[in-house]
Design a protein around this nucleic acid. Structure first.
Length: 572
RNA sequence: CGGGGAGUAGUUCAGUUGGCUAGAACGCUGCGUUUGGGACGCAGAGGCCGCAGGUUCAAGUCCUGUCUCCCCGACCA
């Protein structure tokens, strides 16, 4: 490819909207342009890289026995109604109508579609297990796109769906996919952590994210010292250490407490430790049900685990007004003690206690009355919890099974989900014939990788002050040939032809009106792994100058040896 | 949806208390000189100052509305 003809040249300055390294470099080097927020053009260089990422994934999926196919982009809305996901997806489902008024969802994920095609095949146990995947554009009406390709509203995703006769059989596939993912990301030059995570609206009981550690990542996760436990903040477990459990339960006492509304105000007023304060957080779920979350004062609420425990889709904090008028309590002075009694009965108030309430005796905290506090509050004796569980957020430095947890941030590049019978039980006829002749529900899993995000993550990891440093497997071209002297153009051209004849992809900077410095700067910015310079100077030294991107030393190669030298570099 | 910021040439930005026939740099076109780390000269093209109202002799500048984009949060693959 002649650079002079390439659509998408380098520019000196990035659009001022770009804040992340990957966004800036991909823009400046001519890989992407934005259409509207969260929707990108992939220019010729950009799509070449994405195609290569796709190829790596495709090869690995095929090796793992999965089969590639494709579904329509428009999903009949009835399918989404079957699983009730028109209401529960986290992203706003985008819908369109055709001229007859038939409604479709623009696919944002494709569980329903794959279940639909599989159920209509009427498979038997002999056909199973089966793993089907596709590469397709996904539409997600994100509240806020951000960070160039990192969070977008339209992107190509590899999504795979597996169907099994049993949980046992599924588990083998789940492990195989986890290994396949690790292999894929390694090949792409990304070191990933596999972390336990929340399944969100996908359904199912457990799942894992593959994250690349990065300061700009949106996933917060915790890792123990040996690295054998890694979990997303939303699902991370930790040990609640015992505080004063041996202390005797003292008499419940109401005292005057003219203080502010925060936890710190309570500590300061009573001169008691933060952990001994009872933390009361009032939420309202999507059905208007009030939920009182109780924790030890030094912990925070994990809303995800709270939602799971109370089986709610959505939680919001209760307003001060609701706390006063509906619950007859007082913001900053909420207490589980007596909150359900007296006054008018409060319909549907659920009291949920974190298990950390068992690690502390004689809590202090509010009394549901302004400027009055209770001392020596104890669970079971002074109030009952409707539900008890783990609803506290793990934090940096907490212990889990004797090992210290550290908080890290990462970019989520892929994930794998156990779906179990979630979809096969919601969708009629999602069954196979077992060897005893009866119909049984499929046991399922699904597995996704976002290509654009993966591509951007590669750039986040592989760059220097001059530009991108592509790993060979995904570089848009194998070599970047630079000619510097006009009278050597014929010679450069024959070198390029020789390379191309040997299946080496060449980007040839054939511009005659551009200085050497600019050509070098552009080559560094674009980041192709091998640069070849053929000039008067290089000929004087004996041939062609070869430089690997990311290394500083140069090497002189005889023209006749260039092809074999490049090949040996690429196969590394 | 809450908080903050920004919309002026392809890009980055300047444009003062309203006086604009709207600028600079980079990029682009042409001619010439250059060619080992973002060369130089000369000549050019390129603007509904986001959009719609309003105030004014006069609006890029002031007011109102509206749209879009960015950042933080909320939300979430």
């Amino acid at each position: 490819m002649r650079y002079s003809k390439l659509f998408g040249k380098t520019v000196r300055e990035a659009n001022s909207d770009a804040t992340l390294v990957s966004h800036k470099l991909l823009y400046k080097a001519g890989f992407i342009r934005e259409s509207t927020a969260g929707r990108y053009f992939f220019l010729p260089l950009g799509i070449r890289v994405q195609d290569k990422v796709m190829k790596v994934i495709e090869d690995a999926m095929n090796d793992a026995g999965a089969q590639k196919m494709i579904t329509p982009v428009l999903h009949p809305l009835e399918l989404w109604k079957e699983t009730n996901r028109t209401n529960t997806t986290g992203f706003e489902l985008m819908k369109v109508k055709d001229r007859r008024g038939a409604e479709f969802a623009l696919g944002g994920t494709a569980e329903e579609m794959f279940v639909d095609v599989v159920r209509n095949m009427h498979l038997s146990y002999k056909d199973l297990p089966i793993n089907l995947y596709q590469f397709s554009t996904k539409f997600r009406d994100e509240l806020r796109a951000r960070g160039g390709l990192l969070r977008v509203r339209e992107f190509v995703m590899k999504d795979a769906y597996s169907f099994h006769t049993s949980e046992e059989d599924f588990r083998k596939e789940y492990e195989k996919m986890a290994d396949t993912y690790t292999k894929i990301f390694n090949t792409l030059g990304l070191k990933t952590f596999k972390i336990e995570s929340d399944n969100g609206y996908i359904g199912g009981e457990y799942c894992h994210e593959f994250v690349v550690e990065s300061e700009i990542g949106e996933s917060k996760y915790l890792v123990n010292e040996s690295g054998d436990y890694a979990a997303h903040e939303e699902v991370a477990k930790f040990d609640r250490d015992n505080k004063n459990v041996d202390e005797k339960e003292k008499e419940l006492k109401e005292v005057d407490a003219k203080r502010g509304n925060t936890m710190e105000d309570g500590v300061e007023f009573h001169k008691l430790p933060l952990w001994q304060q009872l933390k009361d957080v009032m939420f309202v779920d999507e059905n208007g049900r009030f939920v009182l979350a109780l924790l030890r004062g030094d912990y925070s609420v994990n809303e995800t685990s709270l939602k799971h425990l109370i089986k709610a889709n959505d939680l919001r904090p209760a307003t001060d007004d609701e706390i006063r008028s509906v619950l007859h309590s007082e913001p900053g002075f909420i207490s589980p003690v007596g909150i359900k009694e007296g006054k008018e009965p409060i319909v549907g108030l659920v009291i949920v206690a974190d298990i950390s309430l068992r690690t502390v005796k004689n809590f202090y905290g509010g009394s549901n009355k302004k400027n009055k506090d209770l001392l020596n509050v104890n669970i079971d004796r002074d109030f009952k919890a409707d539900l008890e569980g783990e609803i506290a957020l793990a934090e940096d430095g907490f212990m889990y099974k004797g090992s210290k947890l550290t908080v890290k941030k990462g970019i989520e590049v892929g994930n794998i989900f156990q779906l179990g019978y979630h979809y096969s039980s919601l969708m009629k006829g999602a069954q196979f014939v077992d060897n005893d002749g009866t119909l049984k529900n499929y046991y399922m899993g699904c597995y996704g990788i976002g290509l654009g995000r993966t591509l951007a993550t590669i750039v986040e990891v592989h760059n220097d002050e001059k530009g991108i440093i592509w790993p060979s497997v995904v570089a848009p071209y194998n070599v970047h040939v630079v000619g510097l002297d006009k009278d050597l153009e014929k010679e450069v051209e024959s070198l390029v032809k020789e390379l191309e004849k040997n299946d080496i992809e060449v980007l040839w900077d054939d511009r005659s009106d551009v200085s050497a410095g600019q050509k070098f700067a552009d080559a560094d910015l674009i980041g192709i792994p091998v640069r070849l310079v053929l000039s008067k100077k290089s000929k004087e030294k004996g041939g062609v100058e070869l430089k690997e991107r990311g290394k500083s030393e140069v090497e002189i190669i005889k023209i006749g040896d260039v092809v074999s030298k490049v090949k040996s570099l690429l196969s590394k």
